[in-house]
């Protein structure tokens, strides 16, 4: 059956076109890899103008911990969180919610483990801190926004084997709507 290539493809053409659907330029700066891990020193965190780099980095960490997909590079989580910075510029209440939300995660983490949330090395420990906060309006907002901001990026769809729009390709009538070939063997 026709399967989907889930690997990230960075062709010269998409780089030259700066294609929004491909991996953004930032991810290519160091030869196709995202340079820094999730940290306040990363360029995308330093670039934030309304949220602190620490808050940005912690939100991206949080996004990864809420919806961890090991086959997705950090850049997709950065893309999902980034709009908060501009929104926080025009919405003081949102900014407070995000800054205070991260501060509270840090305080919880300090109490339990003696380091900030983002400083916790094990996902299990970070998830423990998040679980303790999952009923807060802050957590609920970030989680429910991510459902759209993460999974509605067209660039992540092929990584899950989802092909997106099909009418422009003539539908699936000649592209594998009934090509399953393993049923007789089960």
């Amino acid at each position: 059956m026709r399967e989907i290539d889930k690997r990230t493809r960075v062709s010269r053409r998409t780089v030259l076109r700066g294609g929004a659907a491909a991996v953004p330029a930032a991810a290519l700066a160091s030869g196709g890899f995202v340079a820094a891990a999730i940290s306040a020193d990363a360029a995308w965190a330093q670039d934030a103008s309304h949220l602190t780099p620490h808050t940005m980095a912690s939100l991206v960490r949080m996004a990864r911990d809420i919806y961890p997909h090991d086959h997705l590079a950090d850049i997709y989580y950065v893309n999902a969180i980034k709009p908060y910075d501009a929104q926080a510029g025009g919405d003081a209440a949102l900014r407070t919610m995000l800054e205070e939300g991260i501060a509270r995660l840090d305080a919880d983490s300090q109490n339990r483990h003696g380091v900030t949330y983002i400083g916790l090395a094990w996902e299990e420990q970070r998830v423990g801190v998040l679980r303790a906060n999952e009923d807060t309006p802050f957590f609920k907002k970030v989680r429910s926004d991510l459902i759209v901001t993460l999974y509605n990026q067209k660039a992540v769809w092929p990584k899950f084997g989802y092909e997106g729009a099909s009418a422009d390709k003539g539908g699936y009538i000649h592209r594998g709507f009934n090509d399953i070939d393993w049923l007789s063997s089960v």
Partner: peptide, 23 residues
């Protein structure tokens, strides 16, 4: 599709039990 599956498979769920399903 993937976007609606993420929203409706188990609304409110998060963490690996959920994401491993979407994987």
């Amino acid at each position: 599709g993937l976007p609606f599956m993420a929203a409706f498979l188990n609304p409110g769920a998060w963490g690996r039990p959920f994401t491993s399903a979407l994987d």
